[in-house]
Design a protein around this nucleic acid. Structure first.
Lengths: 212, 212
DNA sequence: AAATAATTTGGACAACCGTCAAGACGGCTG
DNA sequence: CAGCCGTCTTGACGGTTGTCCAAATTATTT
């Protein structure tokens, strides 16, 4: 009986603790999302915890309560950012019924994210560069890079499938190609080069048939 | 006569001023080179003028005497870095007499610079990302990017020439591909992935015949 | 050799940084 | 209602930052 009571109490304790953890984590994500706003605006180098707090509804102390460290916060930001990004083209991939449909759907998403989420993308490139200096970032960054490579690969496989072929290049090379093109287009776009987006689309449109 | 004397004096004045400018600029480059040492070690975000000075033979005041600004210093660093980089493969391109010779020469240089100048390369990627946030960097970065694209294109043209063909892709796409591959390999190399270099070489070896 | 200019030094400054801790607030439990 | 606990605020701390400047040193000209 005593054992049972203790067991029940323990179960309740575990449950409440899990609930607390969940709530705690939800708050972390909320804070990370607010931090991403400022990070995307200023970049890693110029962003301080105080600046993040001032551009959000939170005080700078809260961030230290939920994150052990500045790096901890930014790692959480990166990880959260990943979840959003990696599925960007999946709907197009699954619904497209022809090469043309896939191509146009992909290009549309590409142009849209380049123009509307430029700040998030430049932050990603910033943090990936930081990972070359800061070991604490490397694990997350390499993991995200792998996910993005897989994302691009899913497009290529589907594109090949719709032509009854197989992709001609490796996942790594294909990701490198698209990543390089996107990075260059992003920089040009941020520098107010109005041809950045159409040039990227032309390039990708020309490239897609050659890789399968 | 008076006119002539004035003219001569002016000529001398112009000459000495030019000499002064040259000396001034030589000092700037000397300082920039010292700064690159620390920048390559710590990255843009964590490098301060005092840290640069402490790791060099100069005091921090000198940097402010020769550079109006921290950005001014770093722009000078980037511009100086460019001159070194852009001709890296030119000797291989001009001396190679066969596709194999060009391929092996290129791969050897590629592996060497990735391993021996990793710090300079990561600084380049860092600064290119910074250019997405800091407009002051954009002009120089875009210019260097164009030079690197041309450098890669010279390799491709020569490679095609040695096979009596023409490159199949555009300069932009080709540069994007190699840049993406190199960036990925660099990150992996810095994360102590021993397969980073051989994987890059394998990939490039496989890719070269397909682009021409 | 004297005077003028260019260069270099090292310290002072205010502003900012990440971090921390003492206390306030508010809901929940006993 | 009293006490506790998780959450949050606020202000302070030592250290670092970019910038500036007056004085010292060196080079150049007269």
């Amino acid at each position: 009986m005593a054992r049972q009571a203790t067991g029940a109490a323990q179960r309740v304790a575990v449950a409440t603790e899990a609930l607390r953890d969940e709530k705690f984590n939800a708050r972390r994500i909320e804070l990370a999302e607010a931090a991403l706003e400022t990070l995307g605006e200023l970049g890693f180098a110029r962003t301080s915890l105080r600046e993040i707090a001032q551009n959000s509804a939170f005080t700078h102390g809260v961030f230290h309560y939920y994150f052990s460290d500045k790096l901890d916060l930014i790692c959480c930001c990166v990880r959260h950012y990943k979840a959003k990004c990696v599925t960007r083209y999946d709907e197009v991939v699954t619904t497209a019924q022809s090469r043309d449909e896939l191509t146009e759907g992909f290009l549309a998403k590409l142009a849209a994210t380049l123009e509307n989420e430029a700040r998030m993308h430049r932050l990603w490139y910033d943090l990936r560069s930081q990972a070359m200096f800061e070991p604490a970032f490397r694990k997350d960054v390499l993991e995200i890079d792998k996910s993005l490579e897989a994302m691009i690969w899913r497009i290529a496989v589907r594109y090949a499938e719709l032509g009854n072929k197989k992709p001609a290049s490796s996942p790594a090379a294909l990701y490198a190609l698209f990543d390089g093109l996107f990075q260059s287009a992003l920089l040009r776009h941020l520098a107010n080069d109005e041809k950045a987006v159409p040039d990227l689309l032309d390039e990708v449109r020309r490239l897609l048939p050659t890789i399968c």
